[in-house]
Computed example of a mutant assay.
Amino acid sequence: MNGSALHKTAAECAEELPGSQLEHPFGPAWEVYKVRGKVFMLMTEIPGRPVVILKADPVEAHALREQYSHITPGYHMNKKHWITVEGGEGVDKGLVRELVTDSYRLVVAHLPKADQPVDPHTYGIGARAAR
């Protein structure tokens, strides 16, 4: 998957998520997706190539970085809780959709229960199992 396909796939997935909103708080070079005011995905080409920055469970983030050369610590974010995904070998549509959905679920899980647009413990799990 190349960088433009990466951005397109990530944006399409984010736009499908309940309560997701696109904002540009850092200017037009940054697309920031939020749920209930909390960031779950950023997209930019600032580092010289298209990247998607996502929240990830620290243990899973480490495993992803070990498994995929195109997944690195979060660009300009907490390196333990965020990952940066670039286009490249091994990065496919299914992986990108899974990572975007996981990021969204992690953020939703930390919202007050009354503000959660979905149950973060079950949302998207069936699609993941089918992968």
Rank of each mutant, 00 (worst) to 15 (best):
S4A: 12
A5S: 13
A5H: 11
L6M: 08
L6C: 10
H7F: 09
H7C: 00
K8C: 08
T9Y: 01
T9P: 07
A10W: 05
E12G: 13
E15H: 02
P18N: 09
G19D: 01
S20K: 04
S20M: 06
Q21K: 14
H24M: 12
H24C: 08
G27Q: 07
G27V: 01
G27H: 10
G27E: 05
P28V: 10
P28Y: 05
E31G: 03
K34I: 04
R36H: 07
R36F: 03
R36D: 06
V39Q: 10
V39L: 12
V39C: 07
F40L: 01
F40Y: 09
M41V: 10
M41D: 03
M41N: 06
M41S: 08
T44V: 03
E45R: 04
E45A: 06
E45Q: 07
G48P: 04
R49W: 09
R49A: 10
R49G: 02
R49Y: 13
P50E: 08
P50G: 04
P50H: 07
V51Y: 09
V52A: 08
V52G: 01
V52T: 09
I53E: 00
K55E: 00
A56D: 08
A56L: 05
A56M: 11
D57G: 04
V59H: 11
V59R: 11
E60V: 07
E60Y: 13
H62Q: 13
A63E: 12
L64N: 12
E66V: 11
Q67D: 11
Q67C: 05
Y68Q: 03
Y68A: 03
S69F: 09
S69P: 05
H70Y: 12
I71M: 14
I71C: 13
T72Y: 11
P73G: 10
G74R: 10
G74F: 15
G74N: 13
Y75K: 08
H76L: 05
H76T: 04
H76S: 01
H76I: 03
M77R: 10
N78C: 11
K79E: 11
H81E: 07
H81M: 06
W82Y: 12
T84C: 02
T84I: 10
V85Y: 02
E86G: 14
G87A: 06
G90P: 07
V91D: 00
V91S: 10
D92S: 08
D92C: 08
K93V: 15
K93D: 15
V96E: 03
R97N: 14
R97W: 01
R97T: 15
E98T: 15
E98R: 14
E98W: 06
L99T: 13
V100N: 10
V100K: 15
S103W: 00
S103F: 06
S103I: 06
R105Q: 14
R105N: 15
V108A: 00
V108R: 00
A109V: 01
H110L: 09
H110Q: 14
L111C: 02
L111Y: 02
P112R: 06
K113S: 07
K113M: 02
A114P: 01
D115F: 05
D115A: 14
D115P: 02
P117E: 08
V118F: 05
P120L: 06
P120G: 08
P120V: 02
H121E: 12
H121Q: 08
Y123W: 12
G124C: 05
I125G: 03
G126H: 13
A127W: 04
A129I: 15
A130I: 05
R131P: 04
R131T: 11
R131G: 09
R131I: 08
